Lab assay of single mutants.
Amino acid sequence: EDNEEPDPLPDNWEMAYTEKGEVYFIDHNTKTTSWLDPRLAKKAK
C-alpha cells in the first residue's frame, strides 16, 4: 500500500484556491504565485 504523506510545502509557501477552485501556490519569499507545485519542481530535477 502506498500511503505516502505528501511532502510539506517549502518554507514560506502557501497553497491557495482561486474563485473557481483551482489550486495555486504563493511564494511569500519572492511575493509571487505559481500554478506549479514547488514540491513537484524539486522532484523533476
Rank of each mutant, 00 (worst) to 15 (best):
E1Y: 15
E1R: 15
E1I: 00
E1M: 10
E1D: 11
D2W: 11
D2G: 15
D2C: 15
D2N: 14
N3S: 13
N3L: 12
N3Q: 14
N3P: 09
N3G: 10
E4A: 13
E4M: 15
E4S: 14
E4G: 15
P6A: 12
P6Q: 14
P6S: 12
P6Y: 11
P6V: 13
P6I: 09
P6E: 08
P6N: 11
P6G: 12
P6L: 12
P6D: 06
D7G: 15
D7V: 15
D7M: 12
P8T: 11
P8N: 07
P8I: 08
P8D: 08
P8R: 14
P8G: 11
P8Y: 07
P10H: 02
P10M: 08
P10K: 03
P10R: 03
P10F: 02
P10I: 02
P10A: 03
D11K: 11
D11G: 09
D11A: 12
D11R: 13
D11T: 14
D11M: 11
D11E: 13
N12H: 14
N12S: 07
N12L: 08
N12E: 06
N12D: 08
N12C: 08
N12M: 06
N12R: 10
N12G: 15
W13C: 07
W13G: 01
W13V: 06
W13L: 05
W13R: 02
E14M: 05
E14W: 00
E14K: 07
E14D: 09
E14L: 03
E14F: 01
E14T: 08
M15H: 04
M15P: 06
M15L: 11
M15A: 04
M15C: 08
M15W: 07
M15G: 04
M15N: 02
A16S: 12
A16E: 07
A16L: 05
A16C: 06
A16Y: 04
A16D: 05
A16G: 09
Y17M: 10
Y17V: 12
Y17H: 14
Y17I: 13
Y17P: 01
Y17R: 14
Y17D: 05
Y17C: 12
Y17F: 11
Y17G: 05
Y17S: 11
Y17T: 11
T18G: 05
T18Q: 00
T18S: 10
T18A: 06
T18V: 00
T18W: 01
T18Y: 00
E19D: 11
E19N: 13
E19Y: 06
E19K: 11
E19L: 09
E19S: 11
E19W: 06
E19V: 10
K20V: 10
K20A: 11
K20E: 13
K20R: 11
K20M: 12
K20I: 09
K20P: 05
G21I: 00
G21S: 07
G21K: 08
G21Y: 05
G21Q: 10
G21C: 06
G21M: 08
G21F: 05
G21H: 10
G21R: 08
G21A: 07
E22T: 06
E22D: 09
E22C: 05
E22Y: 05
E22W: 03
E22S: 07
E22G: 05
E22M: 06
E22P: 01
E22A: 07
E22L: 06
V23W: 06
V23L: 10
V23P: 11
V23A: 05
Y24S: 01
Y24D: 02
Y24G: 01
Y24P: 00
Y24W: 03
F25N: 01
F25W: 09
F25R: 01
F25T: 00
F25K: 02
F25Y: 02
F25G: 01
I26V: 12
I26S: 01
I26A: 03
I26W: 01
I26L: 09
I26D: 00
D27A: 01
D27K: 00
D27I: 00
H28N: 04
H28E: 02
H28K: 06
H28F: 06
H28P: 02
H28S: 05
H28Q: 06
H28T: 05
N29A: 13
N29Y: 08
N29W: 08
N29Q: 08
N29V: 10
N29G: 11
N29P: 01
T30P: 00
T30R: 07
T30C: 07
T30H: 09
T30A: 09
T30G: 07
T30Q: 08
K31D: 05
K31A: 09
K31V: 04
K31Y: 07
K31R: 12
K31I: 03
K31M: 12
K31P: 01
T32Q: 07
T32G: 05
T32C: 12
T32A: 10
T32V: 09
T32W: 06
T32S: 10
T32L: 07
T33E: 02
T33S: 07
T33P: 00
T33R: 03
T33W: 01
T33K: 03
T33Q: 02
T33A: 04
T33V: 06
T33N: 05
T33D: 00
T33C: 13
T33H: 00
S34R: 02
S34V: 01
S34G: 04
S34C: 08
S34W: 01
S34Y: 05
W35P: 01
W35I: 03
W35K: 03
W35G: 03
W35R: 05
W35Y: 11
W35V: 04
L36T: 08
L36I: 15
L36N: 07
L36E: 09
L36W: 10
L36V: 13
L36K: 12
L36C: 15
L36Q: 07
L36A: 09
L36F: 07
D37A: 04
D37E: 02
D37M: 03
D37T: 01
D37H: 02
D37N: 07
D37K: 07
D37L: 01
D37G: 03
D37I: 01
R39I: 02
R39W: 02
R39K: 04
R39T: 05
R39V: 03
R39L: 02
R39N: 06
R39C: 04
R39Q: 03
R39A: 03
R39P: 02
R39S: 05
L40V: 14
L40P: 14
L40Q: 13
L40R: 12
L40M: 12
L40E: 13
L40K: 15
A41R: 10
K42R: 13
K42V: 14
K42D: 10
K42P: 15
K42Y: 11
K42N: 13
K43D: 13
K43N: 06
K43T: 11
K43G: 14
K43S: 11
K43A: 14
K43I: 08
K43R: 13
A44R: 10
A44L: 09
A44E: 14
A44W: 09
A44G: 12
K45R: 15
K45V: 15
K45Q: 15
K45G: 14
K45S: 14
